[in-house]
Design a protein around this nucleic acid. Structure first.
Length: 291
DNA sequence: GTAACCCACCAATGATTTCA
DNA sequence: TGAAATCATTGGTGGGTTAC
């Protein structure tokens, strides 16, 4: 079984591809490919499934997102919506989605029709590396991994946890392509779940069933050997300082408690300079009468 | 000098929470 | 109830750093 994962970027960035089989060692990696090279690559590596990190087409349901994206969001997995409104879809922001449509078209020309339901063999499936990583880890990324190196390392750790050799994956795009390929590999073995409306496209996840929503957040801890280790479900005490607050959070404040902190500081600011200093440091307004 | 990489910021959108 | 703020997803871009 061979799965070809493709991470989609707009023209300037290009496509990244990783081929995985049961050995879980990437046997083929490509960087910064053009869409026109996809067909040739598929003919060359002859995968059993093509997993593409992009929607196959614009949405059909009203609003800024598809049913599959709304379903996944219920689990706490954030994603960009695929718009159905042509006006919104014309934004340059969605160039990468348009590139993804072309990749699905190129795959179809090689016999990999767009997946809707049933077995994935011989199909082009839509995947979402972030959702794949969350499902495999069993939790959302630790706080502070929203971007950059931390995000890549967290996902790389998830791949390693599944037994995938990650030494040859040089960029975050290749890590995402590997996650896509791994999703395809699991789906070939029947381990997959694809919520949403098959008519407008479904995102394939590497699990037969999902736990009750939402996913908890992982915590990053330092190991004695200096390497990071995932610690699940860990949360810290909310920093709002309100006496009635018993909330736990992965960030400084529980959602909405920044406003609570601000309100508290306003009260303090009316009688002390320290609170005024903290308000100014955070870029928050001081009480009008002190402005 | 060039390529590769990293980081911060921006864009569109939605969920959540509090305050006014 | 609406406004506001935060946080999360994605890729694009520009500037800085590093390696060859």
């Amino acid at each position: 079984m061979r799965s070809l994962g493709i991470d989609v970027g707009a023209k300037r960035k290009g496509l990244d591809a990783v081929l995985l089989d049961e050995t879980l060692i990437p046997s083929e990696t490509r960087r910064h490919m053009g869409v026109e090279e996809v067909g040739e690559l598929i003919r060359q590596v002859r995968p059993d499934v093509v997993a593409i990190d992009s929607p196959p087409a614009w949405g059909r349901s009203p609003g800024g997102s598809r049913l599959t994206e709304r379903e996944i969001r219920r689990f706490g997995i954030q994603s960009f919506g695929t718009p159905s409104d042509p006006k919104k879809a014309s934004s340059v922001f969605y160039d990468w989605m348009r590139a993804g449509f072309e990749v699905f078209e190129a795959a179809a020309q090689e016999g990999f029709a767009r997946y809707a339901s049933g077995a994935v063999a011989g199909r082009a499936i839509e995947v979402f590396p972030h959702a794949t990583a969350v499902v495999l880890a069993g939790c959302l990324p630790p706080s502070g991994t929203a971007a950059g190196r931390a995000k890549r390392e967290w996902r790389r750790g998830v791949l390693r946890g599944e037994g995938v050799a990650t030494e040859d994956l040089r960029s975050s795009d290749q890590v995402d392509a590997a996650l896509a390929a791994l999703t395809g590999l699991y789906a070939l073995g029947g381990r997959c779940f694809a919520p949403g409306d098959p008519l407008e496209g479904v995102i394939v996840l590497p699990a037969a069933t999902l736990p009750p929503p939402p996913y908890p957040r992982c915590r990053q801890a330092e190991r004695s050997d200096g390497q990071d280790q995932l610690v699940f479900h860990g949360l810290a005490r909310c920093g709002c300082g309100h006496p009635d607050c018993a909330s736990s959070t992965s960030r400084e404040f529980a959602p909405g408690h920044d406003a609570k902190r601000k309100s508290l500081l306003w009260g303090l600011a009316r009688s002390g300079q320290d609170a005024v200093d903290e308000l100014r440091r955070r870029g928050w307004q001081v009480p009008p009468e002190m402005g």
